[in-house]
Computed example of a mutant assay.
Amino acid sequence: MIAFLRGILVDTGTDCVYLDVNGVGFEVTVPPRVLNRVTCIGQEVFLYTYLQTLENEFRIYGFLDEDERQLFRTLLSIPGLGAKTCLGIVSSMTTEELYRAVLAQDEKSLTSVPGIGRKTAQRLIFELQNKWPKTDLIATTASENLRSSWTDTISALETLGFKSSELIPILSQLQAKNELGEAVEENVRKVLRLKGASAKS
């Protein structure tokens, strides 16, 4: 695998850059964010890369940091999501912004990304909740003091038969309203009240 490339920018295309790496020319497909920042012909460019092996070709994708590359790889593993759509998401949202949108099941934020419709947004929410570790999801939305409370609250509710995927959006909603505390019993009662109200509506 080609982990990164460091070379001189020779030219740019509509969705790619051309790098001279010690006399070897590489065409690297990049998200719009990279094209906006890499503009000076002759400048040295460093990109983290991902090599995609297709049926009839190899394609290299380039990113400005490791976080963007990892996000792209995660998105690309979702069935039905093509590289162009994945690049659009990477260019439009940071990893943390995407985490938060998924946790809150915020279809509106996801559909604001060009090329993302409602069905794709729903698929992202469903797939990413299963692909990202629960502890990582918690870490992006809860302060240090509340992380153990999140974990304990989820564990307590899971013993009652609930799934973490349905609990995390409710906890995010409570936290957004500053109604989530460190007392696990109280958090459990609040979640159950919201679940009950949702079932009645």
Results as ranks from 00 to 15, higher is better:
Asn187Lys: 03
Asn187Pro: 03
Thr29Leu: 09
Asp136Lys: 12
Leu47Thr: 02
Asp106Trp: 04
Glu158Thr: 12
Gln70His: 12
Leu75Glu: 06
Val102Asn: 05
Ser165Lys: 15
Thr95Arg: 15
Glu97Leu: 02
Thr29Val: 11
Thr159Cys: 01
Glu97Ile: 02
Leu76Ser: 03
Leu194Asn: 02
Ser172Phe: 14
Arg147Glu: 05
Glu185Val: 01
Gly82Arg: 04
Leu76Glu: 02
Arg147Ile: 03
Cys16Glu: 14
Ser165Trp: 06
Ile60Lys: 03
Ala176Ile: 00
Gly88Val: 07
Trp150Gly: 00
Tyr99Met: 10
Phe126Ser: 06
Ser143Trp: 09
Asn56Ala: 05
Ser91Glu: 05
Lys131Ile: 04
Leu98Gly: 02
Trp150Arg: 00
Ser155Thr: 10
Thr95Asp: 04
Ser77Asp: 10
Ile60Thr: 09
Glu127Met: 03
Leu76Pro: 01
Glu66His: 07
Pro133Cys: 01
Ala83Gly: 00
Trp150His: 10
Asp152Met: 09
Gly80Ala: 06
Gln105Trp: 09
Val38Gln: 09
Tyr61Val: 01
Arg37Ala: 15
Lys190Ser: 09
Glu179Thr: 00
Val188Thr: 03
Gln129Ser: 12
Leu146Asp: 07
Thr120Val: 14
Glu68Val: 05
Asp67Thr: 15
Leu51Thr: 06
Glu182Tyr: 04
Cys40Leu: 15
Phe4Thr: 00
Val38Glu: 12
Ile41Cys: 10
Leu9Glu: 12
Trp132Pro: 00
Gly161Leu: 09
Arg6Asp: 08
Arg73Ile: 07
Phe58Lys: 07
Glu166Tyr: 08
Met1Ala: 08
